[in-house]
Amino acid sequence: MRDPHTDMRAVPVRHYGRYAAAVVVLALLGAIVSAFARGQVNWGAIPDYLFDDRVLLGVRETLTLTVLSMLIGVAGGVLLAVMRLSRNPVTSSVAWFYIWFFRGTPVYVQLLVWFNLGLVFEYVNLGPVYQDEWSDFMTPFLTALLGLGLNEAAYMAEICRAGLLAVDEGQTEAAHALGMRHGRTLRRIVIPQAMRVIVPPTGNEVINMLKTTSLVAAVQYYELLRYAQDIGQTSGAPVEMLFLAAAWYLILTSVLSVGQYYLERYYARGSARILPPTPWQKGRTTLSTFRRPAVGTGSPKGPAW
């Protein structure tokens, strides 16, 4: 007698709402693409100026400002995080006030304040070390560097503090019991373990810093966006040059995202049993899956009853 359960088939549930949502999204995407295609946009101007000398100079200045500002932000963030966790009420209060002020005011306002401090301080007098007028001292590059770097230090301080607090206190107590000093305990025990928590948000901050550099045009510093705007005014294609700048920002953020992935993978070695595959490993696995011959596809030959 045949078992009726052997003839049952699992029929997947049809989600008609998903199909309708996909159709709506594709229709909206097609409408946006069609609107830009019909618009008066000279798309040919974008590849013509993509590798222009001024654009490449702007890319270089943007990357330089991003790297230097993040170095200031990371160094200041680590220092502020240690000060914030200190038992000294003075250093802890100073770190708290710094973080409160720089996180509570927009970076655009901070850039303008640094740029216009010459109206308050006419001269910079550091004694025998340095003396000059404020306008000569506070160049657009220094204004952009201080405005971005000091602002970033406030955000990195909270990221570093969260990473340090994520390490079990028993690690520090065990190191002190072995006779290690506090500074060496931070360098050799706490910070390496905290990096697993610090690296992912720091990567996001680097990408955010790359895009925030576009604000330094307010202090007359030339970077990617400012050069693209100047080219747009002289070439008669202002919108096209904005698209060009957006394309370069997308390229740079994509490269930084890949670097962030490998850095996170590096610091995950001590916590993850199996490291996540790299994009190359994923590609090889996919190709090997397609090339592998199917197993058991032929018709089985059982005994004839």
Rank of each mutant, 00 (worst) to 15 (best):
120 V>H: 03
66 T>G: 02
195 M>V: 08
217 A>W: 05
254 S>N: 11
196 R>W: 00
208 N>S: 15
8 M>K: 15
171 Q>H: 09
245 A>W: 06
114 W>E: 06
54 R>P: 14
45 A>V: 05
55 V>Q: 13
132 D>S: 15
185 T>V: 06
109 V>D: 12
175 A>V: 06
86 S>R: 07
35 A>H: 15
215 L>P: 07
105 T>D: 06
241 M>E: 01
161 R>A: 01
31 A>G: 13
62 T>A: 00
70 M>R: 06
161 R>F: 02
103 R>T: 05
142 L>H: 02
200 P>L: 03
38 R>L: 08
126 L>C: 06
77 G>Y: 02
81 A>G: 11
6 T>A: 14
203 G>K: 11
254 S>Q: 06
198 I>N: 04
96 W>T: 10
93 S>E: 14
119 L>N: 14
276 P>M: 01
235 S>C: 03
112 L>A: 13
216 V>L: 04
61 E>P: 02
264 E>Q: 13
285 T>P: 01
18 R>I: 13
280 W>M: 12
89 P>N: 04
216 V>I: 11
142 L>E: 01
282 K>Y: 08
50 L>E: 13
153 A>K: 05
8 M>A: 15
104 G>E: 11
179 G>C: 09
260 Q>N: 07
58 G>A: 03
70 M>E: 05
95 A>T: 03
99 I>N: 06
296 G>D: 00
123 Y>D: 15
246 A>S: 12
130 Y>G: 07
174 A>Q: 10
169 E>W: 01
190 V>A: 00
47 P>H: 14
63 L>F: 09
119 L>W: 13
27 A>D: 06
65 L>R: 01
72 I>Q: 00
62 T>E: 01
107 V>A: 15
273 R>N: 12
264 E>D: 03
201 P>M: 08
230 D>A: 12
116 N>G: 08
216 V>W: 13
164 L>E: 01
117 L>I: 14
207 I>H: 07
105 T>L: 14
30 G>T: 06
226 R>P: 07
99 I>T: 04
260 Q>E: 05
102 F>W: 14
125 N>H: 07
183 G>P: 05
245 A>C: 10
246 A>R: 02
40 Q>T: 08
183 G>Y: 02
72 I>S: 00
76 G>C: 02
56 L>A: 08
39 G>S: 15
293 P>S: 01
89 P>D: 05
49 Y>E: 10
198 I>Q: 09
169 E>D: 14
93 S>H: 09
221 Y>L: 10
56 L>S: 10
213 T>L: 00
13 V>Y: 08
235 S>G: 01
274 I>L: 11
161 R>G: 00
246 A>V: 09
61 E>L: 12
195 M>K: 04
193 Q>K: 01
258 V>N: 07
203 G>A: 09
257 S>G: 03
